[in-house]
Design a protein around this nucleic acid. Structure first.
Length: 556
RNA sequence: GUGCCCGUAGCUCAAUCGGAUAGAGCAACUGCCUUCUAAGCAGUAGGUUACAGGUUCGAUCCCUGUCGGGCACGCCA
């Protein structure tokens, strides 16, 4: 409908004002129902170039508009020169049939044929996922789902590093706990027996203090027994830590309905020469130079105050070099769009990646970054500073144990990514009945319940949808047909909360319908028509909740 | 000190890429269950959109400045 209005307006304007440049008419949904079902500001935009006042332009457009009564019931001029359209009831009723005919109603082909990579979570396997990771994970996965609904072919990728200093400290932390445990066990010989290790052990500086490290140590003992000959830096400690922690992370993601398509190990970039290729390429552009034994990236050439080290004097790259190489790798894999999900703390790093990509001859416009603001954890009414290393955190698993996966996902999605999200643990735990996610689920459950009763009563499935003329019925239909636009808007803007807002409005429209219109007890033909409308509404809610990764319960 | 993000009802947040009278939820108050789920509905109250200017038909949105909060500024990741 919007496309039809826009195109017709465009033709009308071109016919009226042959010389003028006609912009693509913008069609909005007015906030107030008195302003009709769709509105355009075209007259206001044109008034200057045409040299007439906006109301006059609007009048001329309305007079010349070839009104198709089957679609548009009325055109009105309002305010400073808006043109408001009212949809024909017959057209609205017909849309219900269209929804009923499409199980995946809401899906569009806007990005058909596009390959999109969404990289998210990307937490190194040093500990369980915390609520801090939750926003990243849920935003990334929901964006991936949104992109799929506008036709894209999406890959979910998890980028990780298992070779750095943090992982070394992790392995040593496990080793230290293993040593303590072995002493407690008396070397496996018996309590109180003193055992001797051939190498010294100590808890590392800045080591990981969480209990999960002890769990890993216990698993180590159960697999290998007590070995007095290993040293603290034995690779077996890091290996088992990585294995078990990764398994834990994937379990957590699984609980949240997140399934990765690909895990990308940063170490591959070291092995296949990618880092050298990036350095050589940048050096050829005179953007890389050596100084003080280190290799520098000339970021001052792009307006930064200081240049940036890419390779330390120790010969070890900083994280920025593999970051660049990783994005080169993504673009080499021929993705049309590479979306990164970053917390606000990484906001300063990606301009370097973009400038390097451009310098190397890649289209950096294909890289698209969603930066979300931090989650502030509030516990006992006070902000709570988290640290994985100090074991000072709330894990996503603990959170889901308390409030469930649906509430967890919804909570991270309901706010705009750009604003700080306050996560009050106590409030989330007590959320229960008052939680906003239940409002949506309840609407769906209520519909399903009615449909079960309707089926028992034997209401005919053959519906004359032309009987849907009540204000609440038409209002609900208008809400339903806006669903595909809500999806593409949320996807294009990378703001999933827009879909939540829309679904909330849909639930409001349904509850109003429920309040005003009954089914059982009505004349059979009307009951059948309303049953059709309920099926369509349930479909929109179910599809919408599916995009959010939240269940649509049959009953509550 | 420099850069980025944010500032909207008592609290948490919306406001459809500059649109018409700035909206929800929670908290407060008033009504509605003999009828398909009251986890619902209807209503009342709550605002100088931090502040001061600017751009134009029109600004919560764009520009400048001030104040306040967060983050980043390392041969850490």
């Amino acid at each position: 409908m919007h496309a039809y209005l826009s195109a017709t307006l465009s033709e009308t304007a071109a016919r009226l004002y042959p010389g003028a440049a006609i912009p693509t008419p913008q069609i909005d949904k007015p906030r107030l129902p008195e302003h009709g079902d769709a509105a355009t500001n075209l007259a206001l935009v044109l008034s200057k170039s045409v040299g007439k006042n906006p109301r006059q332009v609007a009048q001329e457009l309305v007079d010349a508009f070839p009104k198709d009564d089957a679609r548009v019931a009325a055109l009105e001029i309002a305010g400073p020169g808006f043109i408001n359209f009212r949809f024909a009831a017959g057209w609205l009723q017909h849309q219900v049939r269209a929804i009923l005919d499409q199980p995946d109603f809401g899906k569009t082909a806007a990005w058909a044929g596009k390959k999109v990579l969404v990289e998210f979570v990307s937490a190194n396997p040093t500990g369980p996922l915390t609520v801090g990771h939750g926003r990243n994970a849920v935003l990334g996965d929901t964006l991936a789902r949104l992109f799929e609904w506008i036709g894209a072919e999406v890959t979910r990728e998890y980028y990780f590093n298992n070779a750095g200093r943090q992982m070394r400290v992790l392995g040593e932390s496990v080793a230290a706990r293993y040593h303590e445990l072995s002493v407690d066990l008396g070397g496996g010989v018996g309590d109180g027996v003193e055992i001797r290790f051939s190498h010294p052990f100590h808890f590392p500086e800045g080591g990981y203090e969480g209990d999960y490290i002890r769990d890993i140590a216990r698993e180590y003992v159960s697999r290998h027994g007590v070995r007095t000959d290993v040293s603290q830096d034995d690779p077996s400690f890091k290996a088992i830590a990585e294995e078990l922690i990764f398994a834990d992370i994937q379990r957590t993601l699984d609980r949240m309905q997140i399934r990765m398509d690909s895990f990308f190990n940063e170490d591959d970039l070291y092995r296949d020469g990618s880092l050298e290729r990036v350095l050589d390429g940048l050096r050829a552009k005179d953007l890389v130079y050596d100084q003080d034994g280190a290799v520098w990236y000339r970021t001052t050439a792009f307006g930064k105050e200081k240049d940036t080290v890419l390779v330390k004097s120790t010969g070890e790259p900083t994280y920025r070099l593999p970051d660049i190489a990783y994005h080169v790798n993504k673009l080499e894999r021929k993705y049309d769009r590479c979306v990164d999900i970053f917390g606000a703390d990484h906001i300063a790093t990606y301009p370097d990646v973009l400038s390097a990509l451009k310098a190397l001859g890649y289209d950096e416009q294909k890289v698209d970054v969603l930066v979300y603001q931090f989650v502030t954890i509030v516990q006992d009414g006070k902000p709570f500073k988290m640290s994985t290393r100090k074991a000072n955190f709330v894990t996503l698993d603990e959170l889901m144990d308390e409030v469930g996966a649906d509430v967890t996902r919804f909570f991270f999605l309901m706010r705009s990514p750009g604003t700080h999200l306050e996560f009050d643990i106590a409030q989330a735990k007590e959320a229960g009945e008052k939680n906003p996610v239940f409002y949506l689920q309840y609407a769906h459950a209520r519909i399903r319940s009615i449909l079960r009763k309707v089926e028992e009563a034997g209401v005919s499935a053959e519906a004359d949808l032309g009987l849907l003329a009540h204000e609440s019925e038409l209002g609900l239909i208008k809400q339903l047909i806006a669903f595909p636009d809500a999806i593409s808007s949320a996807a294009e803007s990378k703001e999933p909360h827009r879909l939540i807002n829309h679904l909330n409005e849909t639930a409001v429209a349904f509850h109003k319908f429920y309040h005003d219109c009954r089914i059982l007890g009505e004349a059979p033909a009307l009951a059948a028509a309303r049953t059709g409308l309920l099926h369509a509404t349930a479909r929109v809610l179910r599809n919408g909740l599916g995009i959010l990764g939240i269940s649509a319960p049959e009953s509550m």
